[in-house]
């Protein structure tokens, strides 16, 4: 478990980093927290010629909350987890991030790295999908913003081009009257999800005006359960409604069987967790409680 040889760069400016990526293209890999990349290197499942370590880049370790949430590429998951203001503007992030690995991992792993890594069972991609997040991508010749919905392309495949760095991930402010919930079943504490769900509901005048149901671990990317969302919108939140929406969500995914659970089991989990999650989110929306 020693990596194959590679050339290591630790650029001190963003331009320098982008320049290296422009030269080396897909022969290069960006190193952020290293919590996903280093195991891949050690097991020689990835053998890039070049490593571009972005940890020396200035001004990327920010978390701001003045207008929604903005998280820089070098903000560690633990930093986001501990930030009390994040709990206020994006309680779903706070609730879900505690499920990412273990404390030791969150101390190093970055939130943006987790999005860029795009494990279909990871928590942050799911949450950014549920909250209409965006990624800010930079390359030598310019920048662009990609919505979470467009960013996750396939298993560990994103819209990132080899010469791009994701400098930031952001979430718009959550409308008032919203409540959210994150639920996960993992084999052990700290494992990737067997299945996970995130729901966000906005309630106005007793009816659900807006609903987001996102599913993780049950497809090649995190998924939006659009049929479940449609079922919820403009309805009064009732137990029967949650049962129906949960059932719809369980049909909105494409789970596969692996050694941690069957496809059928994952579908059941989606149903159980969406049902439970909706109940929780609605209570939170009504009481204004965190979440």
């Amino acid at each position: 478990m020693k990596p194959a040889p590679f050339t290591y760069y630790d650029p001190h400016t963003l331009d320098e980093a982008l320049g290296l990526l422009a030269v080396h293209g897909d022969a290069a890999k960006i190193l952020a927290g290293g919590q996903s990349l280093v195991p891949l290197l050690n097991m020689r499942l990835a053998a890039p010629d070049v490593i571009v370590d972005i940890n020396r880049l200035p001004d990327l370790d920010f978390v701001t909350t003045d207008n929604g949430l903005r998280v820089g590429a070098l903000a560690r998951q633990a930093m986001v987890e501990r930030d009390a203001a994040v709990r206020d503007v994006a309680p779903l992030v706070t609730e879900a991030i505690a499920w990412v690995g273990h404390r030791q991992i969150r101390n190093r792993g970055t939130l943006v790295g987790s999005l860029a890594h795009a494990d279909p069972a990871a928590e942050m991609p799911l949450v950014f999908l549920a909250l209409d997040g965006e990624l800010h991508l930079r390359r030598t010749s310019g920048s662009r913003r990609v919505s979470a919905g467009d960013f996750f392309v396939h298993i560990m495949t994103t819209a990132l081009d080899p010469e791009e760095i994701a400098t930031e991930a952001s979430l718009p402010p959550v409308p008032p009257g919203s409540g959210s919930a994150f639920l996960e079943v993992a084999r052990r504490h700290g494992d990737f999800a067997v299945a996970a769900i995130a729901v966000v509901v906005t309630i106005e005048a007793g009816r659900i005006r807006r609903a987001r149901v996102a599913l993780g671990g049950v497809g090649p990317t995190p998924l939006r359960a659009t049929r479940a969302e449609e079922r919820l919108v403009d309805e009064e939140p009732t137990n029967e409604l949650f049962v129906e929406a949960a059932l719809a969500a369980s049909h909105d995914c494409e789970p596969v069987t692996d050694i941690h659970g069957t496809a059928e089991y994952r579908r059941e989990l989606v149903r159980t967790m969406v049902y439970r999650g909706l109940g929780r989110a609605v209570v939170r929306a009504r009481t204004g409680a965190a979440g």
């Binding site: 079943v185 084999r187 067997v194 941690h260 659970g261 069957t262 089991y265 059941e268």
Partner: peptide, 8 residues
Amino acid sequence: LSPSDIRD
């Protein structure tokens, strides 16, 4: 038995 097996 995993939880999936228990559900089975």
